[in-house]
Amino acid sequence: QPHRKQPSCSAQGENKVVTLLLGAEPEKVCAMPDPALPDSDIKALTTLCDLADRELVLNISWAKNIPGFSSLCLSDQMSLLQSAWMEILILRVAFCSLPCEDRLVFADDYIMDAEQAKSAGLLELHKAILQLVRRYRSMRLEREEFVTLKAIALANSDSMHIEDVEAVQGLQDSLHEALLDYECVHHREDPRRTGKLIMTLPLLRQTSAKAVRHFCSIKQDGRVPMHKLFLELLEANV
């Protein structure tokens, strides 16, 4: 790889990869909790699992639209998604929750405070995601940074089953480069901002692992109906 020279930007100063990632963002999904069911922990968890399943379908199309992702072999595309799917879901919840104090925006029609999280048995997870939200809020995370960081989380998922390590490294490099270029143009005042953003990824990984463990135990309980894709990916992480 050559050394970085000028940022690869359009005449308007926009990075091409970041622009493509903004265009690839999945549409918003509504949670639509079943009005016929009385409020309960089961209802809350059913709503979340159903929402996650529908988002996962959209996230697979999103991944295909990350510049360079679909050049990877199918097996590596699968391995990255199997490792990073929960990080991608959580990062989106964290970004959508930035305007809200102490509440998590799972969807526009499904916003959860600590009390509701406690009733659903999700208080620990709620706290962990809020820690991430506070990190991003203190940095004033921008949409361009969010979409790029989400793609980086996918490319950097540390799956143990990658076949073409060089190709995945190439994808990581191009996304990293895009973030560096964006920060170089938009945040010249803080040369460490890219590093600060990347340094939030361990907390995202930690939170995601916590969420996967929690939903695996819910799955074993067998009281919450789960759709097939959600189940398939939960099983991939065990």
């Binding site: 199309s61 295909k64 699968m78 199997q82 990916l233």
Partner: peptide, 20 residues
């Protein structure tokens, strides 16, 4: 891979891949 057939199918069928 057989265990992950939904992911496999969705990856094969989803549209508009973008490559630089």
């Amino acid at each position: 891979k057989e265990k992950h057939k939904i992911l496999h199918r969705l990856l094969q069928n989803s549209s508009s891949p973008v490559d630089l």
